[in-house]
Design a protein around this nucleic acid. Structure first.
Lengths: 204, 204
DNA sequence: ACCTTTCTGTAGCGGTCAATACATAAAGTC
DNA sequence: GACTTTATGTATTGACCGCTACAGAAAGGT
C-alpha cells in the first residue's frame, strides 16, 4: 500500500522521533522556559540549524514534545476517565494511581509543571497548558456526572467541588514527585484521597 | 531609648520596605527565574544600581522577599500548626483554610511556585524553597504526632502518609489558584480534604 | 567653605538567549 | 556528470540577561 516515496536531498543523520523524545526529557527536567536551545541541542546531539529545520522553533518543538508526552509518556488520565465499564470511583482511582505510577523519577507532569508562570515569551505555551489542565478537571467532572447517570454516584453530590478536589490532588502529586516523593509515597497519598470518597460522595 | 543615629550621605529616595513588597509581588507573579531585574526595577520604580546598593543581588532580594512573604503576606501555616489548644484535625483544617483564604487572586504560594525547576542559576534558591516545603510537611507530621500524644489521633494511624496527603492538598491549592480558582472554590477543596479525615484518622 | 559619605541616573560590561546566514556535503533526478 | 534538493557545521545576529563603572547630587561632619 503506502508507496515508499524516495526522499530527495541529503538525508538527516538523526532519528526525528528519537531526538524528540530526548527533547521531551529536557523539557520535563527544566520546563519550557528553563530549557534553553543549547540544552536541547546538546541533549539531542544535533546542532541548532538541524533543530530549527526539523521542528521550526523552540515553541513548536515543545508542542510536539508535549503531544508525545500526553499520548505516550505521561499518565493516561483521559483513557482512565473514559472507561465506562467501571464506577466513577474506580475510574478516578485508576487515574490517580496511573499518575502516581508514572511520576516516578522525581519529575511530575509536563502539563502541570511545564510552565508554571506566564512570561512574555511563553504566553502561548502557558495558555495551552492551562487549557489542558482545565480540560482534565472538566473530564473528571463529566465522569462524575456519568456516575450519576449510571447510578453509582448520588445525584445530590456537589460534582464541581469534588472534581476540583481530585484535580487538586492530581496536580499536587506532580509537586510531591518533584520534591522527591517515591512511587510508594505517592500511592499512599492516592489511597488517602480515595478514602475520602465515602465522605464526599457516598459508599459505592 | 533607641538612639536615632543621624544617617550619613545622600538619603534614599524610596522606602526600602515598600519597594521590597513590590518586588515580592513581581516574584509572586513570575517566579524567581521569570522575574528579570528589569521587571523588578520597573515595578519598584528604581534603577538597577539602587536595587543592588540596597539589596545586594537578585538572589538576596528574593530571599528578603521570601522572608517577607513567609512572615506576613503568605498563609500562616506554621502558626496554625503550632497551636496546641486545638485538636490536630482543627489545626490542619485551619492551616488549609488559611491557605485557601490567602491564595485569592490567582497567584498561589511563593514557596511552592517560586522556583519549580532546578536550573544552573537558581540552584541555591531552589534548594532553599525545597527545604521550606519539606519543613512544612514535617510540621504537619509533627502536629499529627502531637495529636496522638494529646489523645485526639489514634496511635495506629500512618502519620507520614496522612501528612503527605495534606501536604499534597496544600501544594495543590497553589496550582488551582494559579489556574484561576476562586477563594470559594479553594475552600470547597479544603472541605473535601477535611471530610477525608474520618476515613483517614478516625472520628474526633 | 570644604571634605567625606552615600545614593542617583546614565551608560555599558561580558555573557547567554532564540534564531539564522552561509558555505558545504550528500542524496536523488535527468 | 550536471543539476536540484535537502541537511549539515560554523559562525553570527540583535535582544536581553544580571550586574557594575562612573560621574554627579545631596546629605552630615568639621
Amino acid at each position: 500500500m503506502t508507496a515508499v516515496t524516495k526522499e530527495r536531498g541529503r538525508p538527516r543523520k538523526f532519528d526525528r522521533d528519537q531526538v524528540l523524545r530526548l527533547a521531551m526529557e529536557v523539557f520535563l527536567d527544566r520546563g519550557y522556559d528553563g530549557a534553553s536551545v543549547g540544552d536541547l541541542t546538546t541533549a539531542m546531539g544535533i546542532n541548532a540549524p538541524s533543530l530549527y529545520a526539523a521542528f521550526g522553533c523552540k515553541e513548536a518543538l515543545f508542542r510536539e514534545a508535549l503531544d508525545l508526552y500526553v499520548t505516550s509518556a505521561g499518565p493516561r488520565t483521559r483513557d482512565e476517565l473514559h472507561k465506562r465499564d467501571v464506577t466513577a470511583r474506580e475510574a478516578i482511582q485508576a487515574m490517580l494511581r496511573e499518575a502516581a505510577r508514572r511520576f516516578g523519577e522525581g519529575r511530575g507532569c509536563l502539563v502541570v509543571l511545564g510552565a508554571t508562570h506566564r512570561t512574555t515569551e511563553n504566553e502561548a505555551v502557558f495558555h495551552d497548558l492551562a487549557e489542558r489542565r482545565n480540560e482534565t478537571q472538566s473530564l473528571i467532572r463529566r465522569r462524575l456526572k456519568q456516575g450519576v447517570a449510571d447510578g453509582d454516584v448520588p445525584s445530590k453530590v456537589d460534582i464541581s467541588t469534588v472534581a476540583a478536589f481530585y484535580a487538586t490532588v492530581l496536580n499536587g502529586l506532580s509537586l510531591q514527585a518533584r520534591d522527591g516523593a517515591s512511587r510508594k509515597q505517592l500511592m499512599g497519598v492516592v489511597d488517602c484521597a480515595m478514602k475520602a470518597w465515602v465522605g464526599l460522595v457516598g459508599a459505592t
